[in-house]
C-alpha cells in the first residue's frame, strides 16, 4: 500500500530527538516538573488543557454529498478507522464540531449546507474535502448547476485536495485541523472580547 506524498529522507542527518509532543500531546504547552520526590507536577494553562481536549474529540457531522463521501466512509471503516483519533460521526448538526463537505454542492444544495453550518454550535470548523468542494473541480467549466467552491457559503478551515482524496489525505486534513485547534486562543479571545465590549461602554 502506498502512503502518499512522503519525500525521500536525507540520509546524512542524524535521527532527531523525540519531541515533547510525541511523548504526550499536552506537553507542547505545559511544563512537567517530574523531579519532585514522590511524584510529578504538571503546570499548564486552562486554555491549553481545554484545547487539547477539544482537538482530541472532533465530532464531524455525518454529511456526504457525492463521491468524496464514499472515501469519507472508507476513512471511518475498518482499515483507516478514524475513531482512534476521537473522530466519531454524529447524525445531527447540534452535536457536531466539524462539517466535512465531501463532494460537489449544487446551487440547490448550497443554502442547505449553509443552514446546517448555522445549526452547529460554536466553535465550529469546516473541512472542504476534494476538488469539487474546494473550487468546483472537474465541474468548473460548461456547467450550470454546481457551486464553484463551498467557501462561497461557509468559511473553510482546511482544504483537502484530490479527486477524490484518499482516506489518508482526509486523515492528514483532520490532523492539520487538530494542530490549528491546539494553537487557538480560545479563552483569551473570549476574555478580550468581553473587555472590548465593556470598554465600549453602555449603550
Amino acid at each position: 500500500m502506498s502512503i502518499g506524498f512522503v519525500g525521500p529522507r536525507p540520509e546524512s542527518t542524524p535521527p532527531a530527538e523525540p519531541k515533547r509532543s510525541q511523548i504526550a500531546p499536552v506537553a507542547e504547552m505545559v511544563g512537567i516538573l517530574d523531579s519532585l520526590p514522590g511524584g510529578g507536577l504538571i503546570l499548564t494553562t486552562v486554555e491549553a488543557a481545554l484545547n487539547w481536549g477539544r482537538a482530541a474529540s472532533i465530532w464531524p457531522l455525518t454529511f456526504g454529498l457525492a463521491c468524496c463521501a464514499i472515501e469519507m466512509m472508507a476513512a471511518f471503516a475498518s482499515r483507516f478507522d478514524l475513531d482512534r483519533m476521537g473522530v466519531i460521526p454524529r447524525a445531527t448538526p447540534r452535536q457536531a464540531d466539524l462539517m466535512i463537505v465531501a463532494g460537489r454542492a449544487t446551487l440547490k444544495m448550497a443554502p442547505i449546507v449553509r443552514r446546517l453550518w448555522e445549526q452547529m454550535p460554536e466553535p465550529r470548523y469546516v473541512i472542504s474535502m476534494g476538488s469539487c468542494a474546494t473550487c468546483g473541480g472537474p465541474f468548473y467549466y460548461d456547467n450550470y448547476s454546481i457551486l464553484k467552491g463551498i467557501d462561497q457559503v461557509v468559511p473553510v478551515d482546511v482544504y483537502v485536495p484530490g479527486c477524490p482524496p484518499r482516506p489518508e489525505a482526509l486523515i492528514e486534513g483532520i490532523l492539520k485541523l487538530q494542530e490549528q485547534i491546539k494553537k487557538e486562543p480560545f479563552l483569551r479571545k473570549q476574555a478580550l472580547d468581553a473587555i472590548a465590549a465593556r470598554s465600549a461602554g453602555p449603550r
Partner: peptide, 22 residues
C-alpha cells in the same frame, strides 16, 4: 435534484476521449 451535475450538457463540450473521466 440536489446533486444535479449537468453532466449530459458537459459531455457535449468535451472530446469523446475526455468524456471517459467525466
Amino acid at each position: 435534484g440536489y446533486l444535479h451535475s449537468s453532466v449530459e450538457k458537459m459531455m457535449e463540450h468535451r472530446l469523446y476521449v475526455q468524456n471517459v473521466s467525466l
